[in-house]
Simulated scan of single mutants.
Amino acid sequence: MNQLFNGNGIFPKGPKNEAYAQYFQGTSYLNMLSTTGVNIGNVVFEPGCRNNWHIHHKGGQILLVTGGRGWYQEWDHPARLLVAGDVVNIPPETKHWHGAAKDSWFAHIAIQVPAEGASNQWLEIVDDAQYNQLYYKMSSL
Rank of each mutant, 00 (worst) to 15 (best):
D128N: 13
N120K: 15
G68D: 08
S119I: 02
E116R: 10
V38A: 08
N42G: 04
H77V: 03
Q25Y: 12
V38Y: 12
Y29V: 14
G67W: 04
I125H: 05
P114M: 04
Y72Q: 12
T66E: 00
A107L: 00
H54F: 06
D76H: 11
E74C: 11
Q22T: 14
Q25C: 01
Q61F: 06
Y29D: 09
N2A: 10
G70I: 07
D76G: 00
G26N: 14
Q133V: 02
C49V: 03
H57S: 04
R80I: 10
W71G: 01
G70L: 12
A110M: 01
A101L: 04
Y29S: 09
E93R: 06
I125V: 11
V44K: 03
Q25E: 07
Y131A: 00
P15A: 13
G41W: 04
G26D: 13
L63M: 06
I62N: 12
P91H: 11
G9A: 02
L4G: 12
G60R: 03
N42T: 03
G37T: 04
Q73Y: 09
I55F: 10
I109W: 14
P92D: 06
N8F: 08
T35C: 00
V87I: 13
N42F: 07
H96Q: 13
N31L: 04
L63N: 00
V38Q: 14
V126M: 10
E46F: 05
G9H: 06
G70S: 09
S34V: 00
V88F: 12
P92F: 05
N132P: 01
V126P: 13
G99M: 02
F24E: 05
I62K: 14
H56T: 07
C49M: 02
V65A: 12
F106V: 05
G99T: 02
V83N: 15
G26H: 09
S28T: 15
V88G: 13
S119W: 09
N2F: 07
P47R: 07
Y131I: 02
H57F: 13
N6L: 08
G26F: 08
D76K: 15
A129G: 06
H56N: 12
A84Y: 06
L30W: 07
Q121R: 11
R80K: 14
A79S: 09
W122A: 00
L134A: 04
I62F: 05
G85S: 07
M32Y: 00
C49Q: 01
G67Y: 03
H57L: 10
Y23H: 15
F24Y: 15
K102D: 15
E74Q: 14
A101F: 10
L4P: 05
P91W: 00
R50E: 04
Q61E: 14
W105T: 05
G117W: 10
Q133R: 14
Y72H: 15
N8D: 09
E74R: 11
T66C: 00
H98V: 08
G7F: 05
R80D: 01
Y23A: 14
L33M: 04
V126H: 08
V113P: 01
Q73N: 10
L81P: 04
N52W: 04
T35V: 11
T94R: 10
G68Y: 10
F11A: 12
G59H: 09
G70E: 08
N8M: 01
V87A: 05
H54L: 12
